[in-house]
């Protein structure tokens, strides 16, 4: 009897402690900064700005993706890249700290709508569906490239987009949740296009390696990384930097119901546009040189 009791008591204590601990983790931050920095809209104009100043932090949803938001391998809350640079400018302009909130592909957009984060800085392609539910602060652009294995004769035969449009029976796979589907179907009606479940990488390379797919689409910016990791990979078009496939603006996601906040952030993005672009170029260049050495 006693043993039975003690065991259940211990279990309760552990459970309670666990709840308290995790509960504390939820509501970090605080502090009051009643003073408004110059250029910040007045109180009452933007719900988000008022809350951010009240809280002392700007809550940013992060999901690492080269070359916009690159994680620092050592720590978990440290990032680099154009998105990160710009986010820091937001924080500086508001006189607050960045508060990093991890998001996933399934939560990065809904959390902006729900207000769980002030902005999502995990890079977002500005698609039409997304524009219906959130607004964007654009700071970059992506275009797509198709990747395949050199050793695949059908891939070796297509060098340009025109070659690909003419080719038949190409098998192209992309991850569910990636925006490539409709675009692939429209641009390459001769190809067989499949969506596959994600394994966490940027492109379904496993589909290539296993021979199930001839080509996989991915962001053109991924070219150097893919080439670095898999020596046998080639792209269509061969030089991804010149790719004009599926050009899409990339931005930070903000709530639709706070245009003052969006415009405030957009002004900061425009002000720092050159620096942000340079950070992106530097990051790619840094990566390329690391590959060469």
């Amino acid at each position: 009897m006693r043993a039975f009791h003690n065991a259940s008591k211990a279990a309760l204590v552990v459970a309670a402690a666990a709840l308290v601990l995790t509960g504390c983790a939820t509501d970090a931050g605080g502090g009051d900064s009643s003073e408004r920095p110059d250029g910040v809209p007045a109180a009452g104009e933007s719900r988000h700005i008022d809350e951010i100043l009240e809280r002392g932090t700007i809550r940013v949803g992060v999901l690492a993706e080269f070359p916009w938001l690159v994680l620092d391998k050592e720590g978990t809350d440290n990032y680099r890249g154009p998105s990160w640079t710009l986010a820091n400018h937001y924080a500086d302009a508001l006189g607050v700290e960045l508060e990093v909130v991890p998001v996933s592909n399934d939560t990065k957009v809904p959390l902006v709508q729900q207000g769980g984060v002030d902005i999502t800085i995990g890079p977002l392609n500005e698609t039409d569906e997304r524009r219906k539910v959130i607004d964007f602060v654009t700071y970059s652009q992506s275009s797509a490239c198709l990747y395949g294995l050199k050793t695949n004769p059908r891939v070796a035969a297509v060098e340009t987009v025109a070659d690909l449009e003419a080719a038949s029976e190409m098998n192209i796979a992309y991850y569910v949740g990636q925006p490539f589907g409709p675009w692939l179907a429209e641009d390459f009606p001769n190809a067989e296009i499949r969506s596959v479940q994600g394994s966490g990488s940027d492109a379904p390379i496993e589909e290539l390696l296993s021979g199930r797919a001839d080509l996989v689409p991915a962001d053109a910016a991924k070219a150097p990384k893919l080439a670095g990791e898999y020596g046998d990979i080639v792209s269509v078009p061969r030089n991804c930097a010149e790719s004009n496939l599926m050009p899409t603006p990339v931005g930070h996601g903000v709530s639709k119901d706070d245009p003052v906040f969006r415009d405030f952030l957009t002004a900061i993005a425009e002000e720092h546009a050159d620096e942000v672009r340079q950070v992106e170029l530097d990051l790619v260049a840094e990566f390329m040189s690391a590959l060469d050495s």
Binding site: A64, L71, S201
Partner: peptide, 21 residues
């Protein structure tokens, strides 16, 4: 899927960054 930094998600992030699934 809700971005809990547990082992599988961290691995997904690493895969995305390192391209080594």
């Amino acid at each position: 899927v809700i971005a809990v930094p547990e082992l599988f998600r961290q691995s997904q992030i690493v895969i995305g960054d390192s391209m080594q699934p």
